[in-house]
Simulated scan of single mutants.
Amino acid sequence: MKKGIHPDYKEITVVMSDGTEVQTRSTMDTKDGVYRSEVDSKNHPFYTKSNTFTSTAGRVDRFKRRYGKGDDK
């Protein structure tokens, strides 16, 4: 490998949303060596088959269509 062109590759701890911890190596710049994940396979709607985000987005679009909010006419 060429010297001076690659980012630092160091060990970090990834803390999942449910509290589980995984040791891995990364080029991610963390101040304390810990990355705290807000979304992972335990709570993401794609994995949990929950449509909370898509149904909320549908309600917002329906509101905008019904009341014409957000259109600059």
Rank of each mutant, 00 (worst) to 15 (best):
D72M: 10
S41R: 14
N51V: 09
D18A: 07
K2H: 08
S41P: 04
G33S: 02
S26M: 07
V15G: 05
H44N: 13
K31F: 06
H6N: 11
N51S: 13
I5P: 04
S26C: 04
D32N: 05
T48E: 10
G58Y: 03
K3N: 12
F63W: 04
K31A: 08
T52K: 09
T20Y: 11
K49N: 12
Q23S: 15
G4R: 00
K3R: 12
D71C: 12
D8M: 04
M28R: 04
T52R: 08
F63Y: 00
G70S: 02
R25P: 02
A57C: 07
G4V: 06
E38H: 11
S50V: 10
R36P: 04
N51Q: 11
K49H: 15
I12Y: 01
K69A: 10
K69Y: 12
M1T: 06
T27K: 00
V39R: 03
T24L: 15
F53Q: 10
A57V: 07
S26D: 06
S17Y: 03
N43Q: 10
V34D: 07
R59C: 08
R66V: 13
G19C: 10
K42Y: 09
R59H: 05
K3Q: 15
R66L: 13
Q23N: 15
G19D: 07
T30Y: 06
E11S: 10
D71N: 14
Y47G: 03
T24P: 06
P7A: 01
E38M: 13
T56H: 08
T30A: 09
G68K: 03
Y47A: 09
A57P: 01
Q23E: 15
D61T: 04
T54G: 05
R36L: 09
P45F: 02
V22Q: 14
Q23F: 05
T24Q: 14
T20P: 05
G33H: 01
A57W: 03
M16R: 12
K73A: 10
D61S: 07
E38P: 06
A57G: 04
D18F: 05
V60M: 07
K3D: 11
M28N: 01
D29T: 09
R62K: 09
V39I: 13
T20A: 15
P45Y: 06
T48F: 01
V34C: 08
D72I: 14
E11K: 15
V39A: 08
S41Y: 14
E38T: 15
K31I: 00
G33P: 06
K3H: 08
V15L: 07
D8V: 12
G4F: 05
D61A: 13
T13I: 15
N51R: 09
S26A: 10
Y67L: 07
D61I: 02
